[in-house]
Computed example of a mutant assay.
Amino acid sequence: MNDTFKHGEHLTTDLIWDGNGVNPHASLTVFRHFDSATVTKGLVGTQPKTAWVIDYSLLERIHYLLVAGFDVYGNFGHQLITRMYMDFLRMEGESNFLSLLPADVRRQELADWYQGANQHLSDFLQGDINAFDQPTGVKYTTADPKRELLDRLKTKLAPVTPHRYDFREAPLSAQAITALSEIDRLHGQRATLLPELTFIMVEPTNKTLEPQLFTLARNSAHKNISSLFDEESNRVFANDDVTLVRGLLGSYPGAFWRVKESELPLLAIQAKHLESEKDYRALLDKFGVRRTEPNFWAFSDELNAINQHDQPIEAGLLDYNRIENR
C-alpha cells in the first residue's frame, strides 16, 4: 500500500464505491449486541465511534469466515478461532478507514478505539497492521477530520442510501416526531437502564393508519471490544446512548412498549427523567407490555402481523428468550 498510495496519490474518497448509483449495499451499519449483531443497509443513526472500509479481498475473507466456512454447530475451538481471526479482519477494515485521515490523527484515533487494550494487542496495533505511513489525499478544512470524512462519505452515498429506518418519515404528527427525536437523544445513565433492544408500537391518532413500529437500540459504549471475557470491565456507561429506528431491528427484543401517538410527549418526558431501576419500572407500568400480562400474546400476534405486512421478505420469528423481567 505504501507504494500504491505514495505521497497520498489516489488516496481519496474516490476509492469508495458509490454503488454505481443504484446499489444500496454500498454502505452498511452494524449494530453489535451482546452476543449477536444486526446489519442494515445504509448509514443508520448518528456517526459511529468506529468505521471500516472494506475492499473486495477483505469482504471475501469475511464471507468465508462468517458465512461459507462457519459451522453453527462447531465446537468451542472452532468458534474461538473464528472470533480471533475476525478481530484481525475488523482491525484491517478499521485501518483502511484510518488511512483516509491525516497521518498525525490516525494513531490518536486508534488509541481512542482501543483504550486499555492489553500490551500484546497495543504492540500489534502500533506495529505491523499500521505500517502504512503515506499521507492522505483528502483535503480537510475542519479541526475534526473524522467527522468531516464521515460527513463527506454520507453525502457521497446519499443517492443509494435507503431511508427505511428513518423514524422521521413515519406518518405521525410533528409533535409526535419531536417526541421521538427527544427519545433518540437519550444518553448516559438513562440509556444504560434500557434493554439492548426495545420494540415500540405507536397507535396513530388517525385510525385509518395501522400501528407504527419502532426499535430503540441501546449503544453500549466500550473502551475496546478486543476481549472475549469480562466485558463489563471494558464498559464506559457514561457514554452509552441510543438509536431509534423505524421498524423492527434485531431478533432478540428485551422489552415492548405500547403507546398512543398523543402520549408520545409524555413518554419522552418520562424517559428523559430515568435515573434508577425504580424509574424504569414506573415507565414500564405505564407503557410496557410485560410477558406476564394477559394480553401479551395478542400484542405479540399483532406486532408480528404488522412486521410481516411491512417487511414480507425480511420478517421472521422473534426470539423472546431475552425479554427482561423488570
Rank of each mutant, 00 (worst) to 15 (best):
F229W: 04
L153K: 12
G74C: 06
A271Y: 08
D166S: 12
A271Q: 07
F287L: 02
I54G: 06
N295S: 13
G69L: 01
I313Y: 06
L180D: 07
R106M: 10
A305Y: 00
F167K: 03
I177D: 01
N239W: 12
Y114C: 03
L264R: 06
H10A: 03
G127V: 11
L216C: 14
T136V: 09
T82L: 11
K154W: 06
E293H: 10
H25E: 12
A305R: 07
D123L: 15
G250E: 05
T205Y: 00
H25F: 07
L157G: 06
E232Q: 11
R83N: 07
T82E: 11
V245E: 00
V67N: 13
S300L: 01
W113K: 15
Y73H: 13
M86S: 01
K286E: 07
L274Y: 11
R235N: 01
P294N: 07
A238V: 10
H309G: 02
A282G: 01
E263C: 04
N2P: 09
I225Q: 09
R258M: 05
W257G: 02
A158W: 05
A131Y: 01
N295W: 09
Q175V: 15
E232Y: 10
R291A: 08
T82K: 12
R83Q: 09
D18Y: 05
E169N: 08
F296S: 02
N20W: 11
M1W: 12
E210H: 08
R218Q: 13
D128C: 06
K260N: 13
F97H: 03
L186D: 10
F124H: 09
P162Q: 14
T136P: 03
D184L: 12
K207D: 06
N23L: 04
L172A: 09
H7Y: 15
L65T: 07
L283T: 10
I81R: 08
L264T: 03
Q270E: 12
T155C: 03
R258Y: 06
L100M: 01
V44W: 01
T178R: 03
T50A: 14
D55W: 00
L43R: 09
R164F: 09
D123F: 13
H25L: 06
Q189V: 15
G77V: 13
L180G: 03
G42N: 11
A255V: 09
L194Y: 08
D55P: 00
V242A: 10
L244F: 01
G127Y: 07
N96Q: 15
A315Y: 06
I306M: 14
Q47T: 14
R322F: 12
S251C: 09
D230I: 14
R281G: 00
